[in-house]
Nucleic acid binder design. Sequence first.
DNA 1: GTATGATTCAAACGAACGTTTGAACGATAT
DNA 2: ATATCGTTCAAACGTTCGTTTGAATCATAC
Lengths: 244, 244
Amino acid sequence: MRVVIFQQRRGGVIIMSESHARQGPETRIRILDAAEKLFMEHGFDGTSMRMITSSAKVNLAAVNYHFGSKDALIQEVFRRRLSAMNKERLAALDALTEAAGGEPLKPSRIVEAFFGTSLEMAADTEHGGYTFMRLLGRTYTEPNSFVRQFLAEEYSECVERFLAELYRSLPGVPREEILWRFHFMMGATSYAIAGTDALQLFAGQFDDRDPARLMPRLMSFLLGGLRAALPDFSEQALEHRNAA
Amino acid sequence: MRVVIFQQRRGGVIIMSESHARQGPETRIRILDAAEKLFMEHGFDGTSMRMITSSAKVNLAAVNYHFGSKDALIQEVFRRRLSAMNKERLAALDALTEAAGGEPLKPSRIVEAFFGTSLEMAADTEHGGYTFMRLLGRTYTEPNSFVRQFLAEEYSECVERFLAELYRSLPGVPREEILWRFHFMMGATSYAIAGTDALQLFAGQFDDRDPARLMPRLMSFLLGGLRAALPDFSEQALEHRNAA
DNA sequence: GTATGATTCAAACGAACGTTTGAACGATAT
DNA sequence: ATATCGTTCAAACGTTCGTTTGAATCATAC
């Protein structure tokens, strides 16, 4: 009767390094990489254990041995990337606030620190960053997935700090509007990363997908939206809608 | 040996009206409504035939009898809504161009005609419009789904016409930039509709979800992004990224 | 009333699913 | 050499999947 403690994951790094790879790279990593790619392409339910293990060239039982279950594997796929990404974001924000010396930051700097990190990660096609960012984009829109709860916890601290800086940076703008616009910015960024196919389909002559140009393109759009004139909630808007 | 021709769907309306509803509303409609809701909540793969038929209170075999297969059901879920929505969009655009009498339209009008239609449909919680728009939002981000091909075909004509009007409306802006910004606008709108949970999670104090206010909110953001200053592709941008 | 043809129904089909099992393996420690 | 322990392996577990089947059920046409 073998008992495996899955909470060993963190300390397990030490064990792993002493251990021996029977067939090439570490099995855990191979599984995570394969799962990440397949989850991005086919979703969680559309990806079977057999697809993952055969793609990673490991035995079918390896996932349950190393991670415990399919759900636990999903969580680990997100954990290993999200934590680092949000740490990078917070570090960029810390650098900005320190350089500003107590003064409110420029909105453009805040937006660049947050969404620029997304784009940089998405530009990394060599180490799976691109794959992961597309997976992240499609996971946002899955309402009932248990991953949602996980994402919220992982994001909350980071988003709270960036929102606080945005509030300071735009003192004349109601916080509710900033919150909404932050939401819109996330949507635009998510599509910029994940939805290239969608754009390509109804626009055949579409060539310039140079990731180096995506950054200034997206930033122009985001900042234009963030600094746009405030919405008009008067009855004029209602008349306007009825007329249309 | 019973033979069922599934291509009867269109002419089938006549047959259906002569027919008799053995148990309340038409079985087809009940299935489509239940499937739409379940697909939105759990995705295509996460929704089983048994979930659909038990939710619609019909026999398990009813889906295969009326639609032929699960995939065909998925297509029909989209077809019955998408066609009407894009027709409405094109009608709105026709009304605008006619009123303008050959002159280029104002960008704000074009954006309102396209994305306003999305919001209006999403505001309809009584007839399933809201459910469908959320389903649509999550389907955009599923790369390998066969529905993607279907969506592209259904959208292409409509998007082409709106893009053409945007080009005419913004003669000084490179078409590639307009295309990208249209893409960004689709992302922001999709999140505005589908991603309310995401926003709520990391912003607990979030109250104002009044759909009547969403329209001017989103329009301000979209137009601000569309009319933003053009991106700077000079080497300055690269230096800037290295500095950050 | 009887034949017709569309629809519903309970039951079953083979295939694929996530997971478990116990033996085999291989490097390290004694 | 032998015992130990983490890992891999082939095989099987019970469950659920989408789909099919053939009989039962209904309103209509004759």
